[in-house]
Write a protein that binds this DNA or RNA. Sequence first.
DNA 1: TTGTACGCGTTATCAA
DNA 2: TTGATAACGCGTACAA
Lengths: 351, 351
Amino acid sequence: MQTFALMRGVHMSVTIKDIAGKVGVAPSTVSRVVNGSASISEETKSRILQAMEEMNYHPNSLARNLVNGYSHCIGLIMDARDDITFSNTFFNRSVYAIDKAAQTNGYNLLIANDDNSKGASPVEKLVLERKVDGLILPSNCVRTGLVEMLVKNGCPFVVLGEPSVMKTEACWVDANNEEGARMAVLHLAEEGFQRIAFLIENRKTVFSEKRIAGYLEGLEAAGLSCGQAYIRECGLPENAETTAGETLEEREAPDAFLCSNNVIAYYTLQALKKRGLRIPEDIGIVTFDNHPFAQYMDPPLTAVDVDTFGLGEQAAFQLIQKIKRAESGSQHTLISTRLLIRRSSQKGGSK
Amino acid sequence: MQTFALMRGVHMSVTIKDIAGKVGVAPSTVSRVVNGSASISEETKSRILQAMEEMNYHPNSLARNLVNGYSHCIGLIMDARDDITFSNTFFNRSVYAIDKAAQTNGYNLLIANDDNSKGASPVEKLVLERKVDGLILPSNCVRTGLVEMLVKNGCPFVVLGEPSVMKTEACWVDANNEEGARMAVLHLAEEGFQRIAFLIENRKTVFSEKRIAGYLEGLEAAGLSCGQAYIRECGLPENAETTAGETLEEREAPDAFLCSNNVIAYYTLQALKKRGLRIPEDIGIVTFDNHPFAQYMDPPLTAVDVDTFGLGEQAAFQLIQKIKRAESGSQHTLISTRLLIRRSSQKGGSK
DNA sequence: TTGTACGCGTTATCAA
DNA sequence: TTGATAACGCGTACAA
């Protein structure tokens, strides 16, 4: 035990010099075989490799990073204010992809919470102290001040989700919300639903606007004339039951609901059940974002599923491109969505 | 644009030498004021500070790390094989706490997926190349080979969840599953339920054993004689509906179910509903792990809630202690649970 | 193909 | 209180 305590710490590991000494060559030669640079005679090469094996050599990334000026780390910013926000499944599924893309490209993933309550933002430290080579940040972290600081310090970054400010200057990746909403509406129309309402928290967010556009396009394409009048804001998802209820009392009540997220869908479900309406026979439901529990609802919910893996993968990929090529183009990428058809919308195919 | 491209990259930032030159002192003097070490005359100190301000100096962590041998990074290992596993809300809520604890102690958090399919494990690289000063790893990542490698390289680590191997050697933090199960049973007993069944995936995992122990203690304390006979394994959560159904057909059918996770609880709910049983009037349900959607079930599920924040916080805290003190004690910590009482178990208070 | 010498930005030691 | 110098481990011109 104490042996290990002594072995730990700073200057104890095997270095490039150690194997150089053992083999009888210059450190630079060892460095060359480690990096595969330049041409080395097969003989010394194999002797060096063998020594590396025997002495269990591993390059010290700290030293490496210092000399070539890169940390080989990608910073992923989270904007959680508590552990609930942090556990956002949608976001986390992207993280997996980001990590994977980073790892296959030789980058590590550094997570940092953007707790801008205190003076010096942790994010700022990350780039100023050169701890990261680039940043992925969620759209709601995009403040002009932050972006200016990134640009000033030449730190490449990619935004996850279309931001509300600096739309054109920034490089971002988002789900194709417009397409998703359109597909959902067309599906409902095909199933025979005629008056499709759209329930959202707040119509002024970027993604809401996109979804509304898609919703209207879908209605148009299906030849349904409801349109604008059937869009309802509920504010907090918890209010969705009330909002849905009120909508049902109107003179030309909707016969289907497109819900902007799973919680809204849940509350809408409650409203319908309390009124004794059968789903999907009387009323159809489609929700955005395929939460793992959507399939456990009663009935299972048809959902617009976002390829969160592809989303993260694209973001990481683009960031790495920017880092390597040191270019600052600002691409905008849309990841396509797909419709997972479950019982809640299948009027035609329902038993 | 091109200006930024030029400004970027390696050797462009202002260094300790630059300000030393500007102020007319030695680099070492600047270093001292940056670190607050040694005593500096008020005058030079303020001049240096002013220069740092003017030139927008920020210490290069890469160089710092090299000289003092520490990366100031904590590695957090994930064992996800896909994005679904990764989005495990339970785990992610701990991540938030870990990040917070790390940040307040001057550490960064490095995330890495333990994709041991390929030859060289990424985790091993992290340690061998000195990219992290310590590791937090989930209990199901604990293989003897990995632990041996960590010990050999003097890398401190803390396990999240009690591991099945190296229980005593390793330092771990876990939820108090035993207490949680006991509380749940006592609560059900108080509500008037008499024959409480326990539905688990697999009784042989470490946490299952703990929960079973607590379950039996609870029954004992409540003076209920059911016991061992009412423990049922369902294997995959999807089978829980069948398992619950079969249990209900037995001669002395249970009048309450303790479910080992939310998905099992969901399927149990289905089984009960299909039989026309009312919850909680006819049958009570309590689930482990308070998934955000537990409250949206019909009826809302009473849940054994784990303080995931505390869990992560403890893990990070202990790891940092080990890193700083270079000691290898192996503490075992249990985080207490609490019961969130909702409708599904309130026979007494039900309307 | 290989060795020499220097630098990356910082901290630590020693001397002044 | 300060400065010069040598490290930390590695990469890379340049020369051999």
